[in-house]
Design a protein around this nucleic acid. Structure first.
Lengths: 240, 240
DNA sequence: GTCAATATGTTCGCTACCCGACAGATTAAT
DNA sequence: ATTAATCTGTCGGGTAGCGAACATATTGAC
């Protein structure tokens, strides 16, 4: 993919690892590239907050973001996860300015962003980008639906494995930087439960970890241990 | 319900209790009405099945449909509920033909339907209908997200109350026709647990029930008992 | 190197819920 | 009316996960 224009430099285009952007027809990407801004996405950064206007849509390259729902009592659960396969903040395409949920960076990295106004204008063209974005929104809906079921019916160990696999699919390499405390919040469980499951996974030789990072060392093992939810969502993402 | 024209008779238009249709600009509804077909929606009817093509989009009047996710082991959970405020099967607008979930009628009634091809053509016009449908899809996403959290963090009694309230909002009158067995499947819990919660709600005078139907007799009581998830989703639906 | 901060491992009592089983109650069918 | 089918209530053993507490290990700051 070579673009000679002044907008995105050759080098920048090469670093468009975000698959949603990457697979757009060349002319569409070119049009958007005028407005694409590279951004660092450090761990913990909020991309939007509950009921506050969503200012930009983000396209992660190697970062991973979580959509999180909160209770007024201060408990939280992750409802969805978005990485290089998609975009964050597409709510703004659906006649709203904000969401009751929030979105934060789980796994740090970088990405691109577009102002809300730009993505809305592009969306109104009702061209290829429009339908690609809608297709991604659907995948995300299916992911959230499956998490609804998973949260109800599956064990912490199964869900932890699924979470690690979903992250693993979205990062470069096998190392995932996060604490068990953090994981507990994402899974909506208490921290000691994560510890117990993590020990179990480590004893089986599936993962290895210490203070704030986890390394996947036997992915097939995790895939066998986790519930079918992982594959169901993955199949949906692979459907054309 | 009699249709004398190929269009909708005045009388039929009056019986369009589906709010998504009802609140469309008149010319949009007129255009669609050519293709709108009235349908009975009996309890248990499947509007679509997992990974099978979605043939029609349904607009319930007084019926209520559930989007259900299943495990291969035969367990199920409801992930979302759709009544007169929306439409069933909008997945077809998002570049897919089917969903890994299924959708069935919980509360019988009637409604309207459009062939997939018609709604897709209408959607491509990118007019008012387009954006109204997207707005509803967003509301549904928020509902599903909140259910993800609710399934993880809230008690059966809270969730049962929420479910009854959501149904109550979507039907005429105070009676809801369904068995506890059915409720257990929707909530993804075992049947005796529903029985215990139902007894509790009845003892407090919030509901009254017998063999296959439940009557809401103290709605404010239920609203006080349930978790905040109910109101969060409702607020989202009331947002313009 | 010392100390504070943070991350992790582990224990223990408790509770919500599961699962299976069964009994009683209501309705429908003949 | 009798029977069968369905729906509902309840019991009791078992377990996953909660919550609080505390011990230990690792890291970073000074």
């Amino acid at each position: 993919m070579v673009i000679e224009e002044i907008y995105l430099s050759e080098q920048s285009i090469l670093s468009v690892k975000n698959q949603l952007l990457q697979t757009l027809p060349k002319e569409d990407l070119l049009r958007l590239s005028v407005h694409l801004e590279p951004v660092e996405l450090p761990s913990g950064k909020y991309l939007y907050r509950p009921l506050e206007p969503i200012s930009h849509v983000y396209f992660p390259n190697d970062a991973v973001a979580s959509i999180v729902a909160n209770t007024s009592a201060g408990r939280s659960t992750e409802v969805g996860i978005i990485g290089r396969e998609g975009a964050v903040g597409l709510d703004v395409l659906m006649s709203v300015d904000s969401s009751p949920n929030e979105c934060m960076i789980q796994i740090p990295g970088d990405g691109w962003r577009l102002p809300t106004s730009v993505i809305r204008d592009e969306f109104k063209l009702c061209g290829t980008v429009h339908f690609r974005l809608l297709r991604f929104i659907h995948k995300l809906m299916i992911q959230i639906s499956q998490t609804t079921l998973c949260n109800r019916l599956h064990s912490i160990e199964e869900r932890l494995s699924r979470w690690l696999l979903m992250c693993h699919d979205r990062v470069d390499g096998d190392e995932i930087k996060l604490t068990q405390e953090f994981l507990a919040t994402m899974l909506g469980v208490n921290r000691p439960s994560v510890s117990i499951s993590a020990v179990s996974l480590q004893n089986r030789g599936f993962i290895k970890y210490s203070r704030g990072h986890i390394t996947v060392i036997n992915r097939p093992g995790l895939e066998e241990l986790t519930c079918e939810c992982f594959q169901i969502v993955k199949n949906e993402y692979n459907r054309v």
